[in-house]
Simulated scan of single mutants.
Amino acid sequence: MTEAPRPTAPGGDPHRTTGDGRAPCHHGEILQGYFHDENRRLCHGLVTLPMDRPGSVARFARRPGSKPDEVTVTPAGRTKAREAAVLALRECAVLRGQDPCGGELTLSGDLPVGLGMGSSTSDVVATVRAVADSWGLRLPPETVARLAVRAEGAGDPLMYGPRPLLFAQREGRVLEVLGSALPPAVVVGCALGGSEPVDTLALTVLVEDGDLAAYAHLRRMLRRAVADADTTLLGRVSTASARLRQRVLRHREFPALKGIADSVGAVGVQIAHSGNVAGILFDPRAPGLDGGLRRCRRALAREGITQTRTFTNFASPHRLGGPPWTTTYPKPSAART
């Protein structure tokens, strides 16, 4: 598919030199494992639990006439975002029929780092969008995904919005569109492992006999859960996937987390498969929801598990109760790469 240059972008024209971009985050995974694509080739794949915020905000100012790799980043140390800016500059220059150049990238936002919420991908997607906006362009999500994976080595499907997708994170492509939306859920968020960041590159993936069949079965279950808007089935899938991942992450709090979910009427648990963020899932249509949420928070406090925020994965007229992010998560670090 050929991408036509966009003649006028919001807030400017093709000759503009500054641009802005935003990207959301996610709350870890509903499902992650190994899956076959349409050609029966085995791929790493995941389905994330989307969130509207927090997220990353980027502003990019092009310097026409400068070398294409002369990109400065504030805060310093955001090497993946810088690489994404360089790649996006070259992509957009080709689309505009001009020479690539460098520029200045400024990133902001309140997204916690290293907890498995897609902080680096959020930075990268916001950066690519800001660079494109500085050229008066809007790149399609397939192009943003390709650039993000080249910059990071692997990424999350944040560029596609909140639709539930089985996404090949190391290849930047969609394996399956599961539907228009995940089943509705209320999530009591928490952070395991003392809220410490996880070095995702140091994780060793373990695959045992029967895992491929298990992941194929969970994929079919999740497909059915989305089609039927079945939150209970969603919880079964996320809990099973989280349990499989414990061979790698070994969260000491996981048995307590699962026990709390069972005792308060939740449908299951979900975790970041490469981090410490986690959640207990409730069906918003279930009777006694408010009481279940209160019991859940009290039980988490008794176990010494850090609570973060209670939120929904669907449009809600008001934010559910819970402390703000800044009081419970580590602040974003300038050393994010």
Rank of each mutant, 00 (worst) to 15 (best):
M1V: 15
T2Y: 13
A4Y: 12
A4T: 15
P5N: 14
D13T: 15
P14E: 15
H15D: 15
G21P: 09
E29C: 11
Q32A: 12
G33V: 07
F35S: 10
H36C: 11
E38G: 04
G45V: 08
P50S: 03
R53L: 10
R53S: 13
S56C: 04
A58P: 07
S66C: 01
D69I: 03
V71N: 02
V71K: 03
T72C: 01
T72V: 09
R78V: 05
T79A: 15
E83H: 11
E83C: 06
A85W: 01
V86H: 01
L87P: 03
L95V: 05
R96F: 01
L107Y: 00
G109H: 01
G109C: 02
D110L: 06
D110T: 13
P112S: 08
T121D: 08
V124A: 02
V124P: 02
V125E: 05
A126H: 04
T127K: 00
A132G: 10
A132F: 00
R138W: 02
E142I: 03
A145L: 09
E152Y: 13
G153Y: 14
G153P: 14
A154T: 14
G161P: 08
P162G: 05
F167I: 05
R170P: 06
E171G: 12
G172K: 08
V174G: 00
L178T: 02
S180F: 00
P183W: 01
P184Q: 04
V188E: 07
V188K: 04
C190P: 05
A191C: 14
G194V: 05
S195G: 05
E196G: 02
P197V: 06
A202F: 05
A202N: 05
V205T: 14
L206E: 13
V207S: 04
E208N: 07
R219P: 02
R220E: 15
R220T: 15
R223T: 15
D228H: 12
L233C: 09
R245N: 15
R245D: 12
L249N: 08
E253T: 11
A256T: 13
L257P: 06
K258W: 03
A261C: 11
D262I: 00
D262M: 11
G265I: 06
G268P: 10
G268C: 10
I271F: 12
S274W: 12
A278N: 11
I280D: 12
L281H: 08
F282T: 04
D283S: 07
P284L: 04
A286F: 01
P287D: 13
L289T: 01
D290Q: 05
E303N: 10
I305K: 10
T306G: 10
T306V: 15
Q307Y: 06
R309P: 02
T312S: 13
F314S: 06
A315D: 13
P317F: 06
P317M: 07
P317G: 08
P317K: 09
P317Y: 07
R319P: 00
L320A: 01
G322E: 09
W325F: 14
T327Q: 13
P332R: 06
S333D: 12
A334N: 10
A335G: 04
